[in-house]
Design a protein around this nucleic acid. Structure first.
Length: 320
DNA sequence: GTTGGACCTGCTGAC
DNA sequence: CCGCCCAGGTCCAAC
């Protein structure tokens, strides 16, 4: 293992070579698919996967470079990290296929090479996206963090840094949450969704949600719609980001705009109805195949402009 | 099938 | 500096 000579050397880093399996860490963790990752002043990303605390670091931010990682409190849980980041998924062949299908977008796929769809714990994913309706990414992050810090268990890292990590709360803790408390904790009108969804989930057999990983996409999507606050878009987010349904294409206002502009110009100006939702998602699947959701995530990142830093950059100019 | 309105908050850009 | 619009939608009621 290469020597690492910064403050970070206090962490017993492990190294993974991404030269054959690119990872754009910042884009992956800040694409609005997962909401609790924080980067500290030294560029280290801190987060949790189930009850495991995780530190991730790409010294040069190079997608094809080295990824340094470690887990807490139990060290060296590589399977957990690899599974979450889906590092076994070969992206290069995907980019070829997508760029062939849509040459207009080839540059975008290249620009954000290594942006991966995560494989998230289903419960956290479901509750996080309950919060996504008419909301901003910044505020979603703060809302989900509030849930974790208020109702979740502390994870010990054995270091004085980072700011404390919290496991995502249990369903039973959320089912017993106080609605007024949640409303005040940035959840607003979505507060009852959290509580009712948690209560409904408690009535299911143990492991029911996770078991949706083993059923077909249509069945999983349908099953999620029964929860209050879950419509087609949120259901697709959970399918794609937590339930291995890589053909799921969450159609939000950005993806809708892009999809109509590029693929379905005759729908220009029409509002997003369930029928058009399906049409756009289907258009993605026709072009990008059974991993259309992965293409969607890169295009969302580009279209929503999440990659722009807070500092002034050239304003909204479209590259595609 | 589609449309319109309400819904909690607080960050953000345009005047 | 203030007020307004808006933000990764969903639900409900009314055509």
């Amino acid at each position: 293992m290469r020597q690492v000579t910064t403050h970070n050397s206090r962490i017993a880093w492990r190294r993974f070579d991404c030269s054959k399996s690119p990872l754009h860490l910042e884009a992956t963790l800040r694409t609005g698919q997962s909401f609790r990752w924080c980067r500290d002043a030294n560029g280290v990303w801190w987060g949790t996967i189930e009850s495991v605390g995780v530190a991730l670091w790409q010294p040069d931010g190079e997608p094809y470079g080295d990824l340094y990682w470690q887990t807490f409190p139990e060290p060296d849980l590589w399977e957990v990290v690899e599974d979450y980041l889906q590092l076994r998924t070969d992206l290069e062949s995907l980019y070829c296929r997508w760029s062939f299908a849509e040459p207009r977008l080839a540059e975008v796929f290249r620009a954000f090479a290594g942006l991966r769809v995560l494989r998230q714990p289903p419960e956290e994913c479901l509750f996080a996206f309950l919060c996504a309706t008419t909301n901003t990414v910044t505020k979603i992050e703060r809302s989900v963090r509030y849930l974790a810090e208020r109702y979740g268990a502390r994870i010990c890292t054995g270091l004085d840094k980072p700011a404390t990590l919290f496991a995502f709360p249990s369903v039973s803790a959320l089912s017993a949450a106080d609605e007024r408390d949640l409303r005040a904790g940035l959840w607003g009108y979505r507060a009852p969704f959290v509580i009712k969804t948690a209560q409904k989930l408690l009535q299911k057999p143990q492991g029911w949600l996770r078991a949706l990983r083993d059923v077909p996409y249509a069945e999983a999507h349908e099953a999620l719609l029964e929860f209050p606050g879950v419509g087609p878009k949120v259901a697709d987010c959970v399918c794609l980001f937590a339930l291995d349904k890589w053909e799921a294409v969450p159609v939000d206002r950005h993806i809708y705009r892009l999809g109509v502009r590029l693929f379905l110009p005759h729908f220009e100006g029409r509002s997003l109805t369930p029928r058009l939702y399906k049409a756009v998602a289907e258009a993605f699947r026709e072009r990008f195949g059974p991993m259309a959701g992965w293409a969607q995530q890169t295009l969302f990142y580009a279209e929503a402009g999440l990659y722009r830093r807070p500092d002034k950059e050239s304003s909204r100019q479209r590259r595609f």
